[in-house]
């Protein structure tokens, strides 16, 4: 069954690509691998330059998932693109704050704020 292979919903809003995580928990190594590949292909294969990652559905994520986000951020930056994160729940935001990744990533409260001026 191929269900479950797709971990991100992709939408176009003008020239911006919005990728929404479909999982509540981003923990499983296999899922994280799939998410990473899907994210990286947005930059490397599809050449998308403005990307918003929407975390509205995400209730848990592990340090392994943070690793993929960091790699994604690097890829976007080296392609001279822009990446923003939005709709991160307070519990999850704390995970970014503890690891100081809130300083590495451009994080916005809502999707609207993330789209604005990107």
């Amino acid at each position: 069954m191929s269900a479950g292979q797709r971990r991100l919903d992709i939408e176009e809003v003008g020239d911006i690509t919005v990728a929404t995580f479909t999982d509540k928990k981003i923990l499983d190594e296999g899922n994280i691998q799939i998410i990473g590949n899907q994210l990286f292909s947005l930059v490397e294969e599809e050449g998308r330059g403005k990307i918003v990652l929407d975390f509205a559905n995400v209730e848990y994520l592990s340090s392994a998932a943070l690793g993929k986000l960091i790699t994604m951020d690097k890829k976007v930056k080296s392609a001279k693109g822009k990446l923003r994160l939005c709709s991160v729940r307070p519990d999850i935001y704390e995970v970014f704050a503890i690891t100081k990744l809130n300083k590495l990533f451009d994080m916005r409260e809502t999707r609207e704020q993330a789209l604005e001026g990107l």
Binding site: G67, I70, T99, L104
Partner: peptide, 21 residues
């Protein structure tokens, strides 16, 4: 320490820090 400036953009090393927090 994953929060040192030179490590901030490295993908690994955050698990122990999260446990401690």
């Amino acid at each position: 320490d994953p929060t040192d400036d030179e490590n901030l953009d490295k993908p690994g090393g955050r698990g122990i820090m999260l446990m401690r927090s």
